[in-house]
Each structure stands twice: as C-alpha cells, then as structure tokens.
C-alpha cells in the first residue's frame, strides 16, 4: 500500500520537475530572442536616418542604399531560381514518385544538400557559375548559388505541405475524371499553398542573410547599383562583415544599423506572409 503511495508521490514529483525544466528551456529561448532583438534595436536605432538608408557608403554620413538594393535583388534572384525548381521537385516527390531506388537517391541528395556548409556553396558557386560558366562576380552567380543553398528547405517544406492535404481530396478529383496534373494544380496546390509559402519565405530569409555563399560569387565591398544581372552588387550581410572586421576606421553605427535593416526587412516579409497565411488557412481547414 505504502509502496504504491510512494510511487504515486514520486511520479508527481517527476511530473512537476519536468514541467519546470521544459518550461524554463522554453522561457530561455524567448529571452534570448528578446535579448537579441532588444540589443539590436538599442545599437542599431541610433543609426537610422533617411541619409543612412538612402545614401551612398562613401558619403559623409555614410549610407547603405547599394547594400539594401543588392540584397533585395539577390533575394529576388534566388526566389526566381529556387521557387520553381524547389516547388516542382517537392510536387514530384509528394505526388508522382513511387517508392524505389531513384526516389531514395533523390531524398539522399536533398538531405546531403541541406548538410553542406554555406561556405562550400560559395566555393562551388565560384567554381561553377563565376569561372566555368563565366557569369563572373555577379547578381546572377550569387542568386544561383543562394538558390542551390535554399533548394533543400523549399523542397522539403513543399513536400510536407502537400502531404498534409487529405488523400480524400485527390480521390474526389480523380473520381471526377480529372487528370493527376489537374488534381494537383486545381485542388492540392491551392490547399497546400500556405505551407509552401511559409517554407519558402523561411528559406529565402536565410538566403538573404547569408554571407559566405555570395562572398566569392556576387558581392564587392564598394560598388554602385546593379544595372543588369551580370553586375556585381553590395549586400547587407557582407557589408556588416567588412565593416565589423575593418581594423582601421571602425564604424559600429554602420554595422549595427545594417544589421537592424537586414533583420527588419526579413521580419516585415515574414509578418506579411504570416498574415496572408492566417487568412488563407481560414479557407483551408480539415
């Protein structure tokens, strides 16, 4: 009798302890996020001014306009290459691929791609796009390199989102005499769109903040605005890196200001996507 009571008491203690430990870890995550953002605001806000956002780097006071424009176009370029290929590959894996050696090989490749460090993507991009294909140090080379880096995230999240769509809907469409592609394009993809968009934005946000892959493929410390995809560009992450590691004339205000702009830009896109998603989700529930 008392053995049993002890056991109950022990179980209750473990229960309380686990709740505390897991809760504390969750709180720690929240605190680090808040600390990071708070510190970023404290250091970066003083830099904010119209001339900082829209001015040129060598002017006094220095601006970061070319870096903002460069990062914008690099992200757009990445999206242009990575979204169609990534979503299409996700569709293939979820809707068409049969279980077999080829599918396993594709999945293995994606897992491997996801594990490659970003600096290696930079080297690969420099060798393939810059040198071999002679795209040079350019927006194009950088976008393609970043697209390779982003592909695994987009493929995986597309596949996941498609798998969430109930099999019933596919069956219903097929039973109405729709082809597989019509079923995918009219029923499955629209239903999976919120999930696909979430994953894509996540992947592109990462790409926008990457330094290593663009270092050898697209960016230059000081350069003007790009006029074509074959121009080199400035980019916010690289600008931060250079300014932070410059021993001669350190400019902490520019570093933190650029960091804040980068994070704010990515956050705005994320929030917009989340808002759109919650509206779309209301129409797609099961």
């Amino acid at each position: 009798m008392s053995v049993q009571r002890n056991r109950v008491r022990q179980a209750r203690a473990v229960e309380a302890a686990m709740k505390l430990v897991t809760g504390a870890c969750a709180a720690a995550v929240m605190l680090s996020a808040a600390g990071l953002l708070g510190y970023l605001l404290v250091r970066g806000l003083p830099a904010m001014s119209w001339s900082f956002l829209t001015g040129m780097p060598l002017k006094d006071p220095p601006g970061i306009w070319p870096a903002i424009v460069g990062t914008f176009w690099l992200t757009v370029g990445t999206a242009a290459f990575a979204l169609p290929v990534g979503i299409a590959a996700g569709i293939y894996l979820s809707e068409y691929a049969k279980r077999g050696r080829l599918t396993r090989l594709i999945r293995l490749s994606i897992a491997n791609m996801a594990g490659v460090p970003s600096i290696v993507y930079g080297l690969f991009g420099a060798a393939l796009f810059v040198m071999l294909l002679r795209f040079g140090l350019s927006l194009l080379s950088g976008s393609l390199t970043l697209a390779c880096l982003t592909l695994p995230v987009i493929i995986t999240s597309t596949e996941e989102a498609l798998r969430q769509v109930p099999q019933d809907l596919r069956q219903a469409s097929l039973a109405l005499g729709a082809t597989r592609w019509r079923t995918i394009s009219k029923v499955v993809l629209p239903a999976a769109a919120p999930g696909i968009v979430t994953g894509s934005i996540l992947g592109l946000s990462r790409a926008a903040g990457e330094t290593a892959p663009v270092m050898f493929t697209a960016v230059f410390f000081l350069t003007g605005l790009p006029k074509s995809p074959f121009d080199k560009v400035m980019a916010l992450p690289y600008h931060i890196y250079i300014m932070a590691t410059q021993p001669v004339r350190p400019q902490p205000l520019v570093v933190w200001g650029s960091a804040l702009v980068l994070v704010a830009g990515v956050s705005i896109v994320n929030v917009a996507a989340a808002a759109w998603r919650s509206r779309a989700r209301k129409k797609v529930r099961w």
């Binding site: 097929l174 109405l176 729709a178 239903a191």
Partner: peptide, 29 residues
C-alpha cells in the same frame, strides 16, 4: 480512365468537398 470516370461518378465515405465555393465544387467536373 479519365473518360470512364465521367460516366461513373463516386461519392466517398466522408464528405470531401474541395476547399472552394459551393458553385466551384459543383462546376469542378
């Protein structure tokens, strides 16, 4: 089979309307 399924319709165990309007559901086929 696509043509056959126009001639032979099916209704499933659980209601499975498409996530679209009533009109678009009926007009889908």
């Amino acid at each position: 089979p696509v043509e056959l399924r126009m001639r032979v319709g099916q209704v499933f165990q659980k209601p499975n309307p498409f996530p679209m309007s009533i009109y678009d559901n009926v007009a889908y086929g």
